[in-house]
Design a protein around this nucleic acid. Sequence first.
DNA 1: CTGTTAGCGCCTTCAC
DNA 2: GTGAAGGCGCTAACAG
Lengths: 337, 337
Amino acid sequence: MQSPRPRVTMTDVARAAGVSPMTVSYTYNRPRRVSPETREKVLDAAASLGYAGPDPSARSLRYGATRTLGLVLGEHLTYAFDDPQAVQFLAGIAEVCAERGYGVLIVPTGTGDEDPDRVIAAAVDAYVVWTTTDDDPVLAAAFSTRRPVVVHGGPERAGATMIGIDNRTAARAVGAEVFAGAGRPAVLSFPVDRDRETFVRSGLDPATIAYPVTRDRLAGYRDAAIELGIDWSRVPVGVCRTNDAGEARSMMRRLFDADPGIDAVAAMSDQLAAAAQEEGVRRVSGWDDSDVARRHDLTTVAQSLRDQGAACATAALGGSAPDHREAWRLVRRASTR
Amino acid sequence: MQSPRPRVTMTDVARAAGVSPMTVSYTYNRPRRVSPETREKVLDAAASLGYAGPDPSARSLRYGATRTLGLVLGEHLTYAFDDPQAVQFLAGIAEVCAERGYGVLIVPTGTGDEDPDRVIAAAVDAYVVWTTTDDDPVLAAAFSTRRPVVVHGGPERAGATMIGIDNRTAARAVGAEVFAGAGRPAVLSFPVDRDRETFVRSGLDPATIAYPVTRDRLAGYRDAAIELGIDWSRVPVGVCRTNDAGEARSMMRRLFDADPGIDAVAAMSDQLAAAAQEEGVRRVSGWDDSDVARRHDLTTVAQSLRDQGAACATAALGGSAPDHREAWRLVRRASTR
DNA sequence: CTGTTAGCGCCTTCAC
DNA sequence: GTGAAGGCGCTAACAG
């Protein structure tokens, strides 16, 4: 731990300037309330003592607010920074916060047991929590502080704002595209719980999935399959650990091992879809409409994580943010023709 | 501003549990120093009052440290989040901080005049400043707080750690590759100062550039040109505003307007190099060895911004970080053959 | 194992 | 235009 620095306080400056501490405080906070001569005296004293201005922690204590928004990015910070969508989300948050003069504190999660404590110990006025599972203890920790909490993607909680698109409806729409006319459809999915195991299971039940976003997407794919008369119990779902192309390709090979006839894949990201395409699947759909989707001409679901980040920040800081449930768009491209 | 929430304090909990505030404090900070029965009494009282644990600001004030690292990302947060290298840098910082239980506070800069004040008012133990100009007032603000400052890329300052590769030597090496055998070489550069104007100037003098990183790279390109017997005063330098492909392509067209014979371009990023290539330049070099470089088969300078971020965080938090001056590698690919 | 005392550095309130 | 008192919520140091 950083050891305390030797500090120069307002009292020191006051003494050096021959005024009271209050005058120093005013000099920094209400400069116009102090006469020009006094102000100059104070600033001179401050400069010669190396006083850098009011101590931020003391100020926060006094004000009862920190002007900082806490951002909880989930167990593995690495996954977040490697995910272009998460980065856009962060950009949206940072933009709103910068406008309003709020700092963004990335809460140091990632070590497991200590995570809830670290959330609780963060000096912030509100939290934004990046999409997670229903049972994430970190979420509980954020709520226990009684500060405002905004959750991106889910889970939903009474008393917390949830921001995100209607994943189920969007998945049904893109599923209808990719599964149309397919003989043997399959799904490339994100993890089902925080253990992030990889596996293949036909007819995977969405209700068993701990991540609301993943659950809703899978349910939407199933809706689409059922509407097309496809027997969901025979649709293999390959669950990947991360949003990584290499891993997705080997998962795709596992799917082919199980059923060499697979001819359509609904994937939960553009990266996964591109990997399936590279393994030889003709009909694929992605998610997010990223650069990859454009390069691979993928049918996909467009959404702006940046807008959603901005909305989360706005809501967390007490503004009213627009509903994003319908803020998605089906983008039809060659990959489903 | 977030208005103060109604608070439950240790004193409240102490009263409810029939103990002194110190016992409550111990219960949270040295649980083993408190008897199990007392601990339970205290936690029960806390739960029933909705007490969420010690107030972080009060704790910071008392400890004299915040366990938070301040990150200053420059005038335009947008540029930082749109730059994959900056994101990797952030990832490296976040990783080290998470390991050590430090939060990463993105200081809300970007509005101009207020930026220095916001840096000063940030409740952090140390700063990491993303590459900037010699005269950036935000840097001065960080130093004025007397907290440790680590600067990435530059400028160098007495009393501050600087982490980054030797850009000049690296630029000379890659310049030697791309300019070899070129009849009319040119350069695609990053901005020369924080105004970020775009322009073309032949023989642009590196000494006039306010960003040390850009200055060193240009100087290295010039070194390479001179060694090859090229007259630097006739080498056009196109200065781009951001690291954006669209802008780079139009800058490349401006360079062609000035000199249609341009047959080699040294670019300060892979994105800019790819844009030059797409505009028809046969011989190009990039910088960073990103995905783009691999896709476009670009000769480039490989470096790990992630490692550099980690090193900055380590140094800022009081560890000793390895020197990164030689942590780069020339990657030769088809774009200079 | 628990309690008392004494501030950390600041700013609201109220006086002058 | 300036100052004195008091307390924000917490914990180090020292009893007992």
